[in-house]
């Protein structure tokens, strides 16, 4: 008697990040077994290209980590040259960068935090980088948060917080050509520099004057001051050690946007690759409503770690 089995799906995230964050997990999505693997290439772009070529056709989807193919801002795509070149190494397996989930999942998780009372009108939020996760930025503004967007500070080293979505769109527009040509490591920490922490008072003041720190976990960790008492953290790509660091530094809560898998919250690229493998098409081929519905059906609502007993919501 033959058994009705479906082959598991296999997806891999090839990251420009440090290999110290490598892991593998098996999850069930929509009744299908999905084997997930994350492999860091320590900032070596050529090595990452080689790996993409190697796994192309052998996996159901490839996620690119530590780099984007494009930024999605107000429905426009702003392509990143090195990300595009990396994606072009694959000809069979679909390649995704997580921007589809950032535009949908992170938006809905932020709204869930509003419902949970952790985010509310007037609360001050530092979003270390917003161009890379414009959906979250829009959801925070929509919730009435007072935002400081740190793209100039954390990506370019310019001590000037942006505060509006219009300014973010202006920056993306003015940088459109440069994103195609600027070496990515100049804009975002890759490889071992992701693991380095630089206590810079110019950055610390932004952590201290806001109530919530949101955005890319590597950027948040890189410039994390010794103490962030009472702050909430909204991010992903966490490990147990990272959770401990935030807790020990005095954070009140941590919310992760991607689902947690045995102590690991994966990158959006990996989770988007998993969805792509299960659905059988890229998320960008689906409508936003379809993706949102899919995410809701999977129960991906984000995870909240309360680090201290809440005394009630004061706002």
């Amino acid at each position: 008697m033959s058994e009705n089995t479906i082959d598991p799906k296999n997806v891999i995230s090839i990251s420009l990040g440090s290999s110290s964050g490598d892991f593998s997990r098996t999850i069930i999505l929509n009744g299908l077994t999905v084997n997930l693997k994350r492999e860091g290439t320590n900032g070596d772009l050529e090595h990452a290209k080689e790996k993409v070529r190697l796994v192309d056709g052998c996996v159901d989807a490839i996620g690119l980590g530590g780099i984007d193919i494009c930024l999605r801002v107000r429905g426009e795509k702003f392509f990143i040259g090195e990300g595009l070149k990396l994606a072009e190494q694959a000809h069979v397996s679909p390649v995704v960068d997580g921007s589809g989930l950032k535009d949908t999942l992170e938006r809905s998780v932020t709204r869930n935090l509003v419902e949970a009372g952790l985010i509310y009108p007037g609360i001050k939020v530092l979003m270390v980088n917003a161009l890379d996760r414009f959906g979250m930025a829009e959801a925070l503004i929509e919730a009435g948060c007072i935002c400081q967007f740190g793209d100039l500070i954390f990506n370019l080293g310019i001590d000037y917080p942006l505060t509006t979505l219009n300014e973010l769109h202006e920056l993306a527009t003015k940088y459109r050509k440069r994103l195609l040509t600027t070496p990515f490591h100049m804009l975002y920490p890759t490889g071992s520099s992701q693991d380095e922490t630089i206590a810079n008072p110019n950055f610390a003041k932004y952590y201290l004057e806001n109530d919530v720190i949101a955005g890319d976990r590597h950027l948040i960790s890189k410039h994390l001051p010794n103490r962030i008492d009472g702050k909430g953290i909204l991010t992903n790509t966490t490990r147990e050690s990272v959770v401990k660091t935030f807790r020990d530094a005095g954070a009140t809560w941590l919310a992760t946007t991607t689902p947690e898998m045995e102590g690991v919250s994966g990158g959006t690229n990996l989770m988007e690759a998993a969805l792509t493998a299960v659905v059988g098409c890229r998320l960008e081929d689906l409508s936003v409503n379809e993706v949102t519905h899919l995410i809701e059906n999977l129960g991906w609502t984000g995870s909240i770690h309360p680090f201290t007993e809440r005394r009630g919501i004061e706002h």
């Binding site: 080293g157 003015k174 940088y175 440069r178 600027t182």
Partner: peptide, 18 residues
């Protein structure tokens, strides 16, 4: 330094890119 190269490039982007 790379930071200074980025800054000069940023200034030209802010001045002239549309």
């Amino acid at each position: 330094s790379e930071q200074d190269v980025l800054r000069l490039d940023f200034i030209t982007a802010m001045l002239w890119e549309e």
